[in-house]
Amino acid sequence: MQMKSAPHLLNEDRAEFERVLEDALRNAQDRPDLAAIGQRLNAAQLRTMALTSTALIAAEAAAEYEHYVKIREETRSAAAPTVAQDSVMGTGESAERGAGLAAVIAVLAPVLAGTAAVIFLLIGYSLRMLDPVPAIAKSLVSVGWFFGALAAVAMTVAGIGLLLTALRNEATQVQAVEVVAELPDEVARAKDAWLHALLERGILPFLQASLNDPSADPTSASPPRPVGRIPKVGYSGPNYSSPNEGATKGQRPTFTSPDFSSPDFGGPEHQPD
């Protein structure tokens, strides 16, 4: 596959690439083909070379990655309207059920009780300034303090209601995120196929080629350069060279012109009898 046709890894999938790379380096002692790690190149240098050649390695599993991304996007697109509809329905039903009570407790009750308290207290204390003090002044002050206490209680209940609503919405949101985080079976299978191909056809051959590359200098101050390609095992292209390609360059075949002389012609000194 040509490098220009290899898809670039999405940011959300780079962590998976690094995880598979770390697992391969961590379990290198279990693979004889990676037994040379630590002799010329250590795990840190191989990790640096692999990360700088992410596109090259990912291209070896491009088909599986394209299939995985396609299935994942289709699943997300199909699940998005359902999740949004459920969220809107749940929010709408909760809002409709609690709209009347929440509005009265959170807005109307404190406002009305506070307004009544202010009015009755102002009138009551104003009447108490008169001489003689009207008998109704004491009753108005008592009613004003009653509405003041009622306003305080209403504000407390409204605050508790808002706190409970916030906690309930947070729990619902966390539960929705956990449900979305669970991959469907088809997406999980596509992901496993991509990770397997990435390991077997991309990362492991790249590590082997890096260990066998004599140009990689482990003593250099700069990171080792990335390997130019990943070797293909078990396949060699057909030989299209001509049979005479190995001949000395510039050498031309010699040709002898045919003899067109007559068998009876031998020159003037040889006349026929």
Rank of each mutant, 00 (worst) to 15 (best):
V187Y: 04
G98Y: 15
L25W: 11
V104Y: 08
M3S: 08
G237L: 00
G92T: 15
P110R: 07
S77F: 02
L167N: 04
S242Q: 11
D213Y: 01
R47Q: 10
G114N: 11
P132Y: 11
P268H: 04
L204C: 03
A188L: 06
Y65L: 06
A137K: 04
A113Q: 12
Q271S: 11
A36N: 10
A84G: 03
A113N: 15
G234P: 04
L10V: 08
F17Q: 06
V180Q: 13
L204G: 05
L51W: 00
T254D: 08
G266H: 15
M129G: 11
G246K: 15
A190P: 06
E178S: 00
A35T: 11
P243I: 13
V69F: 02
L21K: 09
G266S: 06
R40M: 02
A58W: 06
A15V: 15
R252Y: 07
E66N: 09
G148N: 12
Q39G: 03
L207T: 14
A149K: 09
N212A: 15
R168K: 11
L56S: 05
N239T: 13
R168P: 00
A102L: 00
A247D: 15
R225P: 01
V111R: 07
D273F: 01
L167I: 07
I203L: 14
A95I: 05
M3F: 06
W194K: 02
L10C: 05
S236A: 08
Y68N: 05
Y125I: 14
T52L: 01
A137R: 07
A6T: 13
S257W: 05
L112R: 10
N42L: 01
S220T: 05
F260L: 07
A35I: 10
I203S: 05
R31P: 01
P238Y: 07
P223H: 07
G267F: 04
F120A: 11
D259Y: 04
L162N: 04
G124D: 09
Q173Y: 08
V133I: 06
T91W: 12
Q85M: 04
D13E: 13
Q175M: 03
G92C: 03
L204A: 01
G234C: 07
M129T: 13
G90Q: 12
A149I: 15
E18S: 13
K70T: 15
E66C: 03
A55T: 15
A151R: 12
I160V: 14
T165S: 05
S210R: 02
V83W: 03
K249M: 03
G144A: 00
D23W: 02
A95G: 06
L211H: 11
D23K: 04
T256K: 11
V153L: 14
F265E: 13
L21V: 12
P223L: 01
R189G: 00
A151S: 14
L51D: 11
